[in-house]
Nucleic acid binder design. Structure first.
Length: 855
DNA sequence: GTGCTGCATGGGC
DNA sequence: GGCCCATGCAGCA
């Protein structure tokens, strides 16, 4: 610690023994921010002439050439810290050249340099304020800040946090690995060349955490991977040379990761950190405001809210950057609201983010903004604003196609990054399952995991794994990683919007229309259908339930040939396949045997973004139209849905009148197993709605078979029930008893394990009037049914809950009565639910047939 | 009737 | 109390 300038009688310059004049002349501002070097006349004059370093530090290290005029500038000490500017491409410029270039190339949105000079050395008081401005507050546009940070702060991963963001609980519970950091006491660096990490305990709020000391260079040396920085902090700069140390939880090293990661950008954080650093550093002895504003205000209105801090991961960066050497600057992220992900196609941008990172717009119409998605597709959005309460509301318009192509929905997160040096905007995303694995969002996350991605994989908190074709899911055994900020009280979904929260609760159900669900059904793996011949017609029957297949988009090529587009699980590129090609639930480019040229994820996508957009749009339209048509067609008959017991643990909750669209862009209505030459009961029928409908009196083979099999089914059920009743005689009878068909009906010997949906066809021939009556019972689940029902289990639970004995539904046809939701969690096993389920199972089974065209 | 556009409203921070 | 922003809604095409 040097002698306070005020206490020394000699010139502050240690190389000068001259006494200070009275009053002493002020030199540069000292690091503590309040004092100034008190100099003798000579040294003061040299300082004011900008020749101090030249005179006294000529043999010191840290001299650099101005990139413009070549003039040597000492960048190695605090004395001249304000007389040069760091340039984005690297190097420095003297004040004079920088002023010229700034005037010539001034771009408020994308500054070319960082100015470290004060307006005048004789106004050293200006420094902190200017630095703060540069860092993103005050009149200087926020958009200047990213470059500022980019240039100075090696930040390997995730968003920086201010010291007071870290408390004990955060360290232990919230902080993700590598999120840990410690602001560095920059004055220490300046003086002794070592990078000392300020112990977090030092901060006023009692935070505890990392306490390490590393040589200055070890910051980079300890990196697991090199960091692409345009300007490395090799030269200790003024206080803005804030750096962060990170620990890698796996090895405890300080370091940075990510080959293309540029330091984190949140502009206000620059101010945030700088201001607080000054404040905190002085907090021990001088608990005053150092940056000109109360500490509390550091989190004030000018802050980029934590929920917008980019939490982009290495993998995502890698995905975005691909193999290029481009540097990616994560800008911000936003969780999609219902309206963002809705049809309107408007993505509301956080105001601060929009103003900081997007081009400045003065007219509400804004301007078109090209954004590239993670797959490389380029989209053009209209970046604009609406006047709103004397403020602005920034929106991106026309995002629907992009959001649909990424299959995003409310709760998912879109991230915005900038690709340097191109300056291209990159839009990435994280699926909700990756972002919300905790708290109230937990359930939704689990659901998503359950449907679209692996769950319960080895917990590796430091990594992310893909959960679906394009999103990521956190492999977080504790369910805390990705939800760190969301667990805060003021989290986006925590309390920000009840409406959004409700929507997320709805995510417990996978919104899936019945037709879409059918379209996704595939024969079970290793299936060996038993073929039964009835009157010359072959019937396939499966022992196991079908599985969910890969959604595709059916299209017609110019030549009229039917094809389907399928998206690769790994690279999310769309590949073309024959329309009748059967896809597993997961499909990757490697399986594209039919098109060797595109059997690798590295192969380009055939579809242009425009074509894809059209395709998705047309798919949606078709789906919507079909839904409407189907609704109209079935409106009189549809009160409940068919039991899709084949969906294993899924349940469909029909919601009449509500057309869900979540998967409509992907779900195909293609007959999942409609194969040429197949003579099964469905394949001999024309697709739903396309052929003549069968009359109730129809005696064709199909109708007769259906009827006979239904009778058999009912007889079996009756017999089973009788047996059970005999066994459980004396037991309490359930409140609702399945009505049974006429016992005199003959049994169909071929009915071994047929689909319960066959039964529905029977209700139309008048033989199941009882069922029709039960269908209209006052069940609280009227209009719905629970696909979680596993018939066998139901039978165990309720002696009268025979669901028909069949567990496998042939995923034929598109005969869904209406759309429904697939529910992943069964209703609570209350009596009411059980009974309701029984009722639903029975009635629903009778209402839906795999031969929907039979009337 | 439907979808789009621009603004208004109001809850939450 | 002011600002942000999710969403509602009227007007229009």
């Amino acid at each position: 610690m040097s002698v306070p300038a005020a206490l020394s009688r000699s010139c502050y310059n240690p190389q000068c023994k001259e006494p200070k004049p009275e009053p002493p002349r002020k030199g540069w501002r000292l690091r503590n921010g309040d004092c100034y070097a008190e100099l003798c006349d000579r040294c003061a004059s040299l300082f004011e002439e900008g020749k101090f370093c030249e005179t006294f530090h000529s043999k010191a290290s840290g001299w650099r050439d101005c990139e413009s005029c070549g003039k040597q500038v000492h960048c190695g000490c605090i004395v001249s810290a304000h007389s040069f500017a760091l340039l984005d491409p690297g190097g420095i410029e003297c004040v004079a050249c920088n002023r010229k270039s700034t005037l010539l190339t001034a771009s408020p949105a994308w500054p070319t340099s960082i100015l470290f000079n004060a307006s005048s050395p004789d106004k050293p008081k200006d420094h902190p304020a200017k630095l703060n401005q540069l860092a993103g507050s005050g009149p200087v546009p926020w958009r200047q800040a990213p470059a500022l940070f980019n240039s100075c702060i090696p930040r390997p991963d995730l968003q920086p946090r201010s010291p007071y963001e870290i408390d004990g609980s955060i360290i232990s519970d919230r902080l993700m690995p590598r999120e840990r950091y410690t602001p560095i006491d920059f004055p220490e660096r300046l003086t002794n060349g070592n990078m000392k990490h300020v112990p977090i305990e030092k901060f006023e709020n009692g935070n505890s955490g990392l306490k390490t000391e590393e040589p200055q260079n070890s910051f980079m040396n300890n990196s697991q991977q090199p960091v692409s920085l345009k300007e490395e902090p090799s030269t200790p700069q003024f206080g803005l040379s804030t750096a962060y140390a990170f620990t890698n939880e796996t090895n405890g090293h300080l370091g940075v990761t990510g080959p293309h990661f540029r330091p984190a950008p949140p502009p206000t954080l620059a101010k945030h950190f700088y201001g607080n650093m000054l404040y905190e550093i002085n907090s021990s002895g001088e608990n005053q405001i150092r940056n000109g504003r109360p500490r509390g205000d550091a989190r004030g209105k000018n802050q980029l809210l934590p929920r917008y801090w980019p939490r982009i991961t290495d993998q995502e960066l890698q995905q975005i950057s691909g193999e290029s050497n481009s540097v990616i600057t994560p800008l911000f992220e936003k969780m999609l609201s219902a309206s963002d992900a809705g049809k309107i196609g408007r993505l509301v941008l956080p105001k601060k983010c929009a103003e900081a990172y997007f081009p400045q717009i003065s007219q509400p119409e804004g301007l078109p903004l090209k954004v590239q998605d993670a797959k490389g597709s380029e989209w053009t959005f209209q970046f604009r604003f609406w006047p709103n309460n004397n403020s602005r509301m920034y929106v991106l318009e026309g995002v629907t196609p992009c959001i649909q192509s990424m299959q995003l929905q409310a709760g998912d997160i879109v991230t915005f990054s900038r690709l340097e040096p191109e300056g291209k905007l990159i839009m990435g995303f994280r699926k909700a399952s990756a972002a919300q694995p905790s708290d109230q969002e937990n359930e939704a996350g689990k659901v998503f995991n359950g449907v679209s991605g692996p769950v319960g994989e080895a917990a590796d908190p430091s990594s992310w794994s893909k959960t679906d074709k394009s999103g990521y899911v956190a492999k977080d055994g504790h369910g805390t990683k990705a939800s760190l900020p969301r667990r805060r009280k003021n989290s986006t979904l925590g309390s920000r919007s009840k409406r959004l929260r409700i929507d997320r609760e709805d995510l417990i159900e996978l919104k899936l229309t019945w037709q879409e669900a059918q379209g996704l059904l595939r024969p079970p793996p290793n299936h060996v259908p038993s073929v039964v011949v009835i009157e010359g017609f072959e019937f396939e029957e499966y022992e196991d339930a079908p599985v969910l297949g890969k959604p595709t988009i059916i299209a017609t090529e110019n030549g009229g040939e039917k094809i389907q587009w399928v998206q690769c699980e790994d690279c999310s590129k769309w590949r073309k396949l024959p329309a009748d090609y059967l896809l597993p639930s997961k499909w990757t480019c490697a399986e594209n045997k039919l098109d060797p040229e595109r059997s690798s994820c590295s192969a380009a996508q055939e579809l242009t973004s425009e074509e894809l957009e059209d395709l998705l749009r047309s798919s949606n339209t078709a789906s919507s139209d079909k839904m409407k048509a189907h609704k109209e067609e079935n409106a009189p008959n549809v009160e409940a849905l068919e039991g899709l017991d084949t969906l294993a643990n899924l349940a469909i909750l029909g919601e009449e009148g509500e057309a869900t669209q979540t998967l409509s862009s992907q779900a195909t209505t293609k007959h999942p197993r409609h194969r040429p030459g197949c003579s099964c009961i469905v394949c001999i029928q024309p697709p739903s709605g396309k052929g003549p409908k069968h009359k109730q009196t129809c005696t064709c083979n199909v109708c007769l078979t259906v009827k006979r099999r239904f009778r058999t089914l009912m007889m079996r059920r009756e017999r089973k029930q009788s047996e059970k009743e005999a066994e459980s005689s004396g037991k309490k009878q359930p409140s609702q008893v399945m009505p049974l068909p006429n016992k005199s009906q003959e049994e169909d010997p071929t009915l071994s394990n047929s689909s319960p949906s066959l039964k529905r066809a029977m209700e139309h021939d008048g033989s199941s009037e009882e069922h029709n009556r039960s269908k209209t019972s006052d069940s609280p689940f009227k209009g719905q049914f629970d696909l979680n029902i596993q018939p066998e289990r139901e039978e165990e639970m309720s002696p009268c809950s025979d669901s028909g004995g069949g567990t496998a539904v042939k995923p034929h046809g598109e005969g869904g009565a209406t759309e429904g939701h697939v529910q992943l969690h069964p209703p609570p096993p209350s009596d009411e639910n059980q009974n309701s389920s029984v009722d639903k199972t029975t009635s629903n089974s009778l209402q839906e047939a795999e031969v929907p065209s039979i009337t």
